[in-house]
């Protein structure tokens, strides 16, 4: 029988040392809502489990004009946290669509980033705020802008020796919303999702972010669509044009959840709704 070791470090230093020792053979275990299903079905066969639950990474703080979110913060915590509700409500909106209560009590934001699914629901909200991810290894820490973190489905720039430690979220101005379309309201992977943020000055858009989920190999920032809005008066016609452009930048696929054709149609409608809502039209 395969021998697997289990470690439950209580300090980050200890955790990264274990990752340095075990490298690719170690699996980092946070809430386990992705990882344990993979273990149960023998999709992964790590030789060591490094459980992060003892590291006290479940926190949300405001520091120097930023929100600092520990990687071990559960989705349930995001949903009830006052700072998140007041300063980063788009993340709370996304958290409300995540799984169901018994998933949210364990699933973490760090695990959502670690899984790196194009459908990961916390990711678009973090992307519209230009979040930075702090990665730690036995050699030190580095900060990666979320925009540069994902390289493909399930793939990121994180090395096997690194831990996602925390997420730094600048409190950018403007209004943001998250919208998700799934086969039902609860416990679904999105067919398409979007987060948008607009900073408006009167009716004119000063800054824009548009992110699509489940429409490309990674969550996708639609920069051409964003550029269409900047400096313009936002009206219904521009919103429609911009939503079509956002989807034109994506590369949706056919899968068991929906066809590419449907994703493009629904995605355009979803982005248009989100933009209209934040622009107040």
């Amino acid at each position: 029988m395969r021998e697997v070791s289990y470690f439950a470090p209580t300090e980050v230093g200890e955790a990264v040392k274990l990752l340095a020792q075990h490298g690719e053979k170690a699996a980092v275990l946070a809430g386990g809502t992705d990882l344990v299903a993979q273990l149960n079905y023998y999709e992964i066969k790590p030789s060591a489990l490094v459980y992060l639950g003892g590291l006290d990474l479940d926190y949300v703080r405001e520091e120097g004009g930023k929100l600092v979110i520990g990687a071990g913060t559960t989705i349930a915590h995001l949903l009830t946290d006052d700072l998140i509700a007041q300063k980063f409500s788009v993340l709370a909106e996304a958290a409300a669509t995540h799984g169901s209560p018994a998933i949210r009590t364990k699933a973490t934001i760090g695990g959502n980033l670690g899984t790196a699914s194009p459908a990961g629901d916390m990711i678009p909200a973090l992307m519209v705020m230009d979040a930075d991810l702090v990665l730690a290894s036995s050699k030190g820490q580095r900060t990666v802008p979320i925009q540069e973190f994902f390289t493909g489905p399930g793939e990121t720039v994180r090395t096997a020796e690194e831990l996602i430690l925390e997420i730094h979220v600048p409190l950018l101005k403007g209004k943001a919303v998250f919208k998700k379309l799934g086969r039902r309201k609860a416990q679904v992977c999105s067919i398409v999702s979007t987060a948008v943020r607009l900073e408006m000055d009167g009716g004119v858009c000063k800054d824009a972010r548009i992110v699509l989920g489940s429409m490309a190999p990674t969550p996708l920032r639609c920069s051409k669509a964003e550029a269409m809005l900047k400096g313009k008066a936002v009206d219904a016609a521009l919103v429609a044009e911009c939503a079509a452009q956002a989807v034109a930048e994506s590369t949706p696929i056919d899968d068991q959840r929906a066809t590419a054709w449907y994703r493009a149609k629904a995605g355009t409608a979803l982005v248009a709704r989100a933009l209209a809502e934040v622009a107040g039209i």
């Binding site: 275990l29 809502t33 009590t105 364990k106």
Partner: peptide, 24 residues
């Protein structure tokens, strides 16, 4: 994790026992 019939309370909160590594 999909069906919920394994749900138990851990320190009073609902969790999936099938997705919970026992040692945790």
């Amino acid at each position: 994790g999909d069906c919920g019939t394994c749900t138990v309370l851990l320190d009073g909160e609902p969790v999936r026992s099938c997705l919970t590594i026992a040692l945790t």
